[in-house]
Design a protein around this nucleic acid. Structure first.
Lengths: 226, 226
DNA sequence: ACCTAAATTTAGGCACGCCTAAAAATGGGC
DNA sequence: GCCCATTTTTAGGCGTGCCTAAATTTAGGT
């Protein structure tokens, strides 16, 4: 019960559709990098397993059951704890952690999970700013919003960045963008043009295109306590 | 190239037959806990792979090629580094490490291997006293011999203990037997009877039957420098 | 309401890693 | 040197997880 393929599928449904929305066959095929036909087969299996991992209606996508959600969150907890562990304890760089965690998340025991959580001091966020699900399935919340929606002329703090593209992480790292860093949006160029912004105390102005900006979430600055 | 099943098979050949002896189909079936028929299929595949992992003659067992040996040693290096890491960094007990390492040895990257080796100070022996192969495929050597062959009336130091049975490890731990501990053999009871010996500074005398004694290796005491 | 394009499912196939049952090779005792 | 017990291999099968190609269903535009 709970092969790697199943775990990856549940995780993908959670990531695409969240707690109680439905994920589409095509979306899952893209996320998992397998054919739509293979996804259909997997969804059927997941919904017919006893007890079922998902609710599935043909042609209308899949929604996680309580059990499915619990499993997805467990895998995501593994993934994010491992990322933080690799970064803090084994000195992995920001962009190296994701690939390694993708394999290890399926291999570690609950004991391993507990031990690294303890060594790390029961952390709430991973190196990219993503919340680490708790063992009880709840998520630490940090109210944040898309960088795309930020008001020109205001300040904000980087909350999290997508971890899927290592080259993007390298680039962000090279210009100083990390969770916790303050940014100032100067202007938004017209016709969906780039966002012009400053990072931290750096005077340089950077242009963020849609791809890059879309991978970043921010939160309002608490206080400008210098 | 290099699935988990293949790695386990190469490791089993190395453990049963060593560098340049042949392992039998039956032996491998036992070690891997699969049927002899499945072993035959696996051996054929391993010998026909390009380049081959093993030399295989029907009805005459399998011998590792250079490539096969290198891979086996790499997996064993992973296993033993992980055992030591779990013990030292994540506070696993002696008897817990083997099972977890058995899964993780297949999941970690070369980077992970290097980082934990570095954190641990490039160790040469795992928590059970087994030598950790170096990256170049050489083995740290510690001349040791079977406890069974120890001379009554002499002292020795525990060199290594088998890690396959957690309950045996728990028992050994409870009476203080660990690599590095000094033991004194009082007598060997007749007709393959138990070995009567003292452990460390403990006055108690313990009886070691064949199974237990067979899982322990010792080395001559260097000097009785109190 | 229909018709078409897109999304999805069905059908059939393949590699892996295991199984059991039956056939064949080996080698030790006589 | 032959025979029999043991070991090993062959033959055929099963579940998983993926594939492609063809059939089907859905949903959007008119």
């Amino acid at each position: 019960m709970g092969s790697e393929a199943i775990d990856n599928c549940l995780k993908a449904i959670y990531q695409l559709a969240g707690d109680d929305e439905r994920a589409t066959t095509a979306g899952l095929a893209e996320q998992l990098a397998i054919s739509p036909a293979s996804v259909t087969g997997m969804l059927k299996k997941l919904s017919e397993s006893d007890p079922p991992w998902i609710e599935y209606q043909k042609h209308h996508g899949a929604r996680l059951t309580d059990r499915g959600r619990a499993r997805a969150l467990e895998i995501i907890r593994h993934h994010r704890l491992i990322e933080l562990f690799l970064h803090r304890v084994l000195d992995y760089s920001w962009d190296e952690v994701h690939v390694e965690a993708e394999k290890l998340e399926h291999a570690i025991s609950e004991t391993f999970e507990d031990r690294i959580a303890h060594v790390l001091g029961d952390p709430e966020f991973d190196p990219h700013g993503h919340p680490i699900p708790r063992r009880d399935g709840t998520l630490p919340d940090r109210a944040d919003s898309d960088l795309i929606d930020m008001e020109p002329g205001t300040d904000a703090e980087v909350s999290r960045v997508s971890d899927h593209d290592p080259t993007m992480l390298q680039h962000l790292s090279s210009i100083g963008v990390r969770p916790g860093v303050r940014i100032h949006l100067l202007e938004r160029r017209p016709f969906d043009g780039p966002l012009m912004l400053r990072v931290g105390d750096d005077r340089a102005v950077h242009a963020f295109g849609a791809r890059l900006a879309g991978s970043i979430r921010i939160r309002d600055i608490r206080s400008t306590a210098a």
